[in-house]
């Protein structure tokens, strides 16, 4: 890693639901242009961390510093405007719109009430949509209703909907779930391209996939960080082995 500037700094982050601490005094730092994988058994709090970063869940305590701003105090759309994109666990796209329209609606223009009333489909938007569609391997399907795409293609489309906003931090929750081997390879390649000019956090269960993409891996367990480092170092960590095989 040539650039070690910190983009996202999470400090002492805690969230409790009725006494149960889903995330417990978590500290996590993600650098610029880093691709970080977060792994851990079910219920470790991975998705909750993403929810906290993007404002879907409000933290009980702690700070999330992103480009000098504390995200815990902002609402979801403000966090998006700052440059944080989020893909959900199950692909969340507009099934009855075409691929083109899905991407267009995500294009960061006309985001206010007034702006959306006067929004026009201009040439630069068309070009940008096509450019992104090509990147997510969907340029041949622009006119297809998104509902008709395969599961893997829907995952790509949602990634594309984030890409078109050019976020500085992209958070992907299980991006390769339900994908074929070939699609997985393509996705790995896509993520490699994506993180050239932005940071990416990926939650994934597929260890082979994680190994092939991640710069650094964070292992979570019971709301805390169990280990952090390269894939190899993490895999040799005894605590990690115990958590994964211990029960």
């Amino acid at each position: 890693m040539t650039n070690t500037e910190v983009l996202l700094a999470i400090e002492d982050l805690t969230v409790s639901f009725d006494g149960f601490k889903a995330v417990d005094a978590l500290n996590l730092y993600v650098n610029k242009y880093e691709l970080r994988a977060v792994i851990g058994p079910n219920g470790a709090g991975k998705t909750t961390v993403l929810d906290l970063i993007c404002g879907r869940t409000k933290a009980t305590a702690g700070r999330i510093q992103f480009k000098e701003k504390d995200l815990t105090k902002l609402s979801e759309h403000q966090i998006v405007h700052l440059g944080v994109g989020r893909k959900f666990q199950t692909p969340s796209i507009y099934g009855n719109l075409t691929v083109f329209e899905n991407l267009e609606i995500s294009f960061p223009r006309g985001r206010t009430v007034l702006g959306s009333l006067v929004f026009r489909r201009t040439q630069d938007i068309r070009d940008r949509v096509r450019e992104v569609a090509k990147e997510i391997f969907l340029d041949a399907h622009l006119d297809m209703e998104a509902e008709l795409l395969s599961h893997g293609q829907k995952q790509w489309l949602e990634i594309g909907m984030l890409l078109i906003q050019e976020p500085e931090l992209m958070m992907l929750d299980e991006p390769v779930a339900g994908m074929s081997v070939k699609e997985r390879e393509q996705t790995a390649e896509l993520l490699g391209r994506i993180c050239r000019n932005r940071s990416v956090i990926v939650i994934e269960h597929d260890m082979e996939f994680v190994k092939s993409i991640a710069h650094k891996v964070t292992v979570m367990h019971q709301g805390k960080i169990l280990a952090e480092g390269t894939m190899e170092s993490v895999q040799e960590n005894e605590k990690v082995i115990e958590v994964y095989l211990g029960h």
Binding site: C54, R56, S75, E76, H77, V80, H81, G85, R86, F88, S92, I93, Y94, G95, N96, L97, E101, I105, S106, P108, G110, R111, T112, V113, S116, L117, V118, F119, M161, Q165
Partner: peptide
């Protein structure tokens, strides 16, 4: 207008619209 499309989108996938940067 785009506002009409957004409303339709919100009706079905409010969360996604919110995380596309719109103040729903």
């Amino acid at each position: 207008s785009k506002l009409g499309r957004l409303l339709l989108a919100m009706r079905d996938k409010e969360e996604r619209v919110r995380f596309s940067g719109y103040d729903v």
